[in-house]
Write a protein that binds this DNA or RNA. Sequence first.
DNA 1: TATATCTATCGTATATTTACGATTAACGAT
DNA 2: ATCGTTAATCGTAAATATACGATAGATATA
Lengths: 105, 105
Amino acid sequence: MAFSKIEKFTKKDIWLADIAKALSHPARIKILKILAGMNACMCGDIVELLPLSQSTVSQHLKELKRVGLITGEIEGPKVCYCINNANLQKAKSEINKLFNQVFEC
Amino acid sequence: MAFSKIEKFTKKDIWLADIAKALSHPARIKILKILAGMNACMCGDIVELLPLSQSTVSQHLKELKRVGLITGEIEGPKVCYCINNANLQKAKSEINKLFNQVFEC
DNA sequence: TATATCTATCGTATATTTACGATTAACGAT
DNA sequence: ATCGTTAATCGTAAATATACGATAGATATA
């Protein structure tokens, strides 16, 4: 790769691509669904619901947190993960906007 | 990585992740917007609109074609790329479904 | 205070992605 | 038939992602 060319694109496109990247692994899709199904937030029993090790799940959670789709609050010895509804809403609407923009061809 | 665990997830989640992966680079987001702006399909002058080499753009086009978001028809010595509206529509609605599913928490 | 539990991080191995230049293949025009 | 144009593919290098076990840090409980 020598050097990444990512900085040559618009902030918006970089942001959209970054959200898409966070959604680009089935484990992370599943984590979002699990967190939704719990309706209150929940801690890392997520690990038991995924066919992956604790450390790998932790990495996937970190990636979702990085783009702001979830939050993780320390609660005693556990960590309580939640969907970040505001950011999810923003992601949804921006992705929709992209699709609509691409449709009008 | 030793072995990928992707086959341990549902077909639907794998498919969603795959679409997201195709959208996970700003060059591919921009390519979709370019193709939309042309409203008829167009050939690889896309290259001139991107800060990337011809071979790199070709790889990005291949990735978008792989997941079916665009089509590429040979037209003489050129290749004419188009948005695949049906597949784009499907992607849009499934991603929306995912977001709505995750919201109801 | 010692112990058990939970989760992030470190170190590491392997796979995949990104990017480029060079080459090849396919075609139209001369 | 040759030449120029277009775009895919090959070979390669470097960056990033995926996955795990081991370890470390934080905390609740005994």
